[in-house]
């Protein structure tokens, strides 16, 4: 997959050339490319003078960073305790079937990535499904969720 090295440099340029900028830069990569590309981590290592091993360690540590391209939309099903009790796993299965992916996977057309997450802090509304980190679908039946997901292109 061709990643524009100039875009990578543009992002790195925005920050101080110190180790403290590392996470912010990786987050910007995630935002711009929808994942953290290897080329990007290599470049950050050169520019900040931080070993690649450290950068890769950080890249694998945070759930908010992905080392593989994620879809245009992310669908996060909460499987925290409350949501679990309210059938989050059945919900995950049903959504997975509809999208044709396992949790953690991305649809072939790149439209959706399905993820399970732990408690998003809205337990009273369980079960909770979150799309693109901004749209919440709470307490909904699987059918409603599926209907809502179809809105995302």
């Amino acid at each position: 997959m061709g990643i524009d090295i100039r875009k990578i440099d543009e992002i790195i340029e925005r920050y101080d050339k110190s180790e403290e900028s590392l996470l912010a830069i990786l987050q910007d990569f995630q935002h711009t490319f929808r994942y953290v590309p290897e080329e990007g981590m290599k470049r950050v290592s050169e520019v900040l003078g931080v070993p690649e091993s450290k950068i890769y360690g950080v890249g694998t540590f945070y759930k908010a960073l992905s080392l593989k391209p994620v879809g245009r939309h992310t669908c996060k099903v909460c499987t925290g305790t409350a949501c679990h009790l309210k059938g989050a796993h059945t919900l995950t299965d049903i959504i997975g079937k509809e999208l044709g992916v396992e949790p953690g996977g991305t649809t072939k057309d790149g439209r959706f990535t399905l993820q399970t997450v732990n408690c998003v802090g809205a337990c009273a509304l369980a079960p909770v499904v979150m799309v693109d980190d901004e749209d919440y679908y709470e307490g909904s039946s699987p059918q409603d969720v599926l209907k809502n997901l179809r809105k995302y292109k």
């Binding site: 981590m41 070993p51 690649e52 091993s53 450290k54 950068i55 890769y56 360690g57 694998t60 540590f61």
Partner: peptide, 17 residues
């Protein structure tokens, strides 16, 4: 050359990429 990768149960050392 190596760092700790992943977290929780999966945490273990490894090389970049």
């Amino acid at each position: 050359a190596i760092s700790m990768l992943d977290r929780g149960r999966d945490k273990a050392p490894g090389t970049p990429y």
